[in-house]
């Protein structure tokens, strides 16, 4: 049984054409999957469908064999944690308080219990946020805020993490650290789906790439297969090149 199985998933917004058409893909277990594609290809919409925030027009999305859109909202959030691009920057809470929002699907009591605090401590440890725990979220840098949101998703203790352009506003150091974190989380048993425009980093760090174009899955496979220069040029309309460094590392560049 796959951890995630998407079958023939289609969606369109009212009054607009189809955003996603017949998406079929799956993930058997822990891995880092980069979802790439041009603007408007349907990447964020796909995450919204997987997290149950939108209902598909047709097709199914099964998580551990069960239809995501039949489950209760809280039950689904115990299996899938969705991290949007950003939340309002002026949220007046501390880092610990933001992280603890991940425990809402585990119980609606007025106060968090010991299990909730144990999950928070683990998430703080994994995301190396110990020095920030008492600081206000609104006072953090973009990279620190992104780590806090990932920590909140970890605190949710869901096996599947969906991240929508988490490195959009990060400098190279923070971006590299975030991808290191994703790989570490994969090693801890999480399935990570990351929407990204940073194809070079996706090529280096992801186990697999889902390439979306015009609402369809144009390619699905390891970076070297799913990101062939000819396919990428057809999708993004700029030339791409794979290179091998003297140390044997493979990397991707693009541009005329």
């Amino acid at each position: 049984m796959s951890l995630l199985a998407i079958e023939n998933l289609s969606f369109s917004y009212p009054g607009r054409g189809a955003v996603l058409t017949g998406i079929t893909a799956s993930a058997a277990g822990p891995e880092v999957i980069a979802i790439a594609g041009p603007n408007g290809a349907g990447k964020s919409t796909l995450l919204d469908l997987l997290s149950g925030q939108r209902r598909p027009e047709s097709g199914t999305c099964r998580i551990q064999g069960r239809d995501a859109h039949v489950m209760g909202r809280e039950e689904l959030c115990r299996l899938v944690a969705h991290v949007p691009q950003m939340i309002p920057g002026d949220v007046p809470f501390t880092v610990e308080e933001v992280i603890l929002t991940g425990r809402i699907p585990h119980g609606r009591g007025l106060y968090e219990n010991d299990d909730d605090h144990a999950a928070m401590e683990l998430a703080i440890k994994r995301t190396r946020l110990n020095d920030f725990r008492g600081r206000r979220f609104s006072k953090l840098s973009g990279g620190e805020k992104q780590r806090v949101l990932v920590a909140a998703a970890l605190c949710q203790q869901a096996p599947i993490l969906l991240l929508d352009e988490p490195s959009a506003h990060l400098d190279p150091e923070n971006e590299a650290q975030l991808w290191d974190l994703f790989r570490a989380l994969r090693d801890c048993g999480h399935l990570i789906l990351v929407v990204t425009h940073h194809l070079a980093l996706a090529a280096q760090n992801a186990d697999r790439v889902w390439l979306l174009n015009l609402g369809q899955l144009a390619a699905d496979g390891p970076p070297c297969d799913a990101m062939r220069p000819a396919d990428l040029e057809r999708v993004f309309h700029v030339p791409f090149h794979w290179h091998r460094s003297a140390e044997g590392r493979v990397f991707l560049t693009y541009g005329r």
Partner: peptide, 23 residues
């Protein structure tokens, strides 16, 4: 009073609240 923990999550916006299981 019973809703107050959920009201905290509402402060983060619709997308975040929905992703934490709040309708």
């Amino acid at each position: 009073l019973r809703l107050s923990r959920v009201l905290n999550v509402i402060s983060y916006g619709e997308t975040w609240a929905a992703g934490r299981g709040v309708d």
